[in-house]
């Protein structure tokens, strides 16, 4: 079936059409840009929440509980779970869904597992397109769940309206490492497994660190949950909505959508140029010649690279 035929079904809420469109976009097929530019007009309505944190903190369980709650409220929810691809084989073992099995039968809920596919930051390159598609499919809320390490925090922040950081008591040094940048990006902190010893202490530590961060309009919340028993999720949803209201009132909501469009503009331009460059480069006589000379040792690779890029750019103009 062609992508144009899938679009009406997507708008009508057909999960299979949504799923097949996601595949085409994720696989960077030739129709990707066509699809994305058509659905762009339908995006911007979904409330996008990023959920990140160390492995084992209970992100998937929280996602499961929260989505269940939202589904009961009659909201349509999309979930994107990102796991790393193997750098060796390019394959992936995606295991988050195992904790979301109670959601499979909930109407309006759509969960998709994504492999990071070589994206350095850890967030799948396709994640933002998938979020757009879920948005276009009429989801009220889209949750992105990913292990929060390295650059993922920044990527999530760019994508999400609200960023939630999940931690557990007793990580000890874990909280210290949050200082390095991550305190700034989270709007809501969750101390999960709050029935455990040290939960209150972790909450105190977080509050303390937050007090050292420069005050902003939104004072990040610190919440306790016990996701296995579905405790604290209603409060999480209240805080999320509170944050959303603030975004809307302050104009941030629209600004975030403009930022996202800008990011797409920039990144896609880069991609297109690179793609073109690469395609031409591979069959370029000049490159082959340079390669030969580097192989022979008559030229260093740095000089050769400069030479090629300058030559390429000169020929563009």
């Amino acid at each position: 079936m062609s992508w144009t035929e899938l679009l009406p079904a997507l708008r009508a809420g057909d999960p299979l059409a949504l799923s097949r469109l996601i595949s085409r976009v994720e696989n960077q097929g030739s129709e990707k840009v066509q699809i994305m530019k058509t659905v762009f007009a339908w995006t911007g309505k979904a409330y996008i929440v990023g959920l990140t944190g160390p492995p084992g903190a209970g992100k998937s369980t929280i996602t499961n509980g929260l989505v269940e709650l939202l589904a009961e409220k009659g909201l349509k929810v999309g979930v994107v779970c990102v796991d790393p691809s193997s750098p060796f084989s390019g394959g992936a073992f995606l295991g988050d869904r195992i904790r979301m099995t109670s959601l499979d039968a909930k109407p309006g809920v759509f969960i998709r597992s994504l492999a990071s596919r070589g994206s350095l930051g850890g967030l799948s390159a396709a994640a933002k397109d998938v979020v757009q598609l879920l948005d276009a499919a009429g989801k009220d809320v889209v949750l992105i769940e990913t292990v929060g390490m390295g650059q993922v925090g920044d990527e999530i922040k760019k994508l999400a309206d609200t960023t939630v950081l999940v931690t557990v008591p007793g990580l000890g040094d874990g909280i210290q490492t949050f200082k390095a940048g991550i305190m700034e990006i989270a709007d809501i902190f969750i101390v999960n497994k709050a029935e455990r010893e040290g939960a209150d202490e972790t909450v105190r530590d977080l509050e303390m660190m937050l007090s050292e961060v420069e005050p902003k309009k939104w004072r990040p919340r610190v919440l306790k949950t016990c996701a296995l028993r579905k405790e604290g999720l209603e409060e999480l949803w209240e805080s999320l909505q509170e944050h959303r209201r603030l975004l809307e009132q302050s104009g941030q909501w629209m600004a975030q959508r403009r930022n996202r469009a800008n990011t797409i503009l920039l990144e896609n331009s880069k991609e297109h140029v690179l793609e073109k460059f690469q395609r031409e480069l591979e069959k370029d006589e000049l490159l082959l010649g340079m390669r030969r000379r580097v192989d022979e040792g008559s030229l260093d690779p740095y000089t050769a690279a400069l030479f090629i890029s300058e030559y390429f750019l000169a020929n563009r103009t």
């Binding site: 999960p15 299979l16 799923s19 097949r20 996601i22 595949s23 691809s85 193997s86 060796f88 084989s89 390019g90 394959g91 992936a92 073992f93 995606l94 295991g95 869904r97 195992i98 099995t101 499979d104 039968a105 759509f110 969960i111 998709r112 597992s113 492999a115």
Partner: peptide, 29 residues
């Protein structure tokens, strides 16, 4: 894990009954 090593993307669902497997198969394409 070995299919992953062969370059495939494997979604592990754990224990499931047919209805849930179908739902997941649709959503994961």
């Amino acid at each position: 894990r070995m299919l992953r090593d062969a370059g495939m993307e494997v979604v592990y669902l754990g224990n499931q009954f047919p209805e849930e497997i179908i739902n997941a198969a649709i959503q994961e394409d």
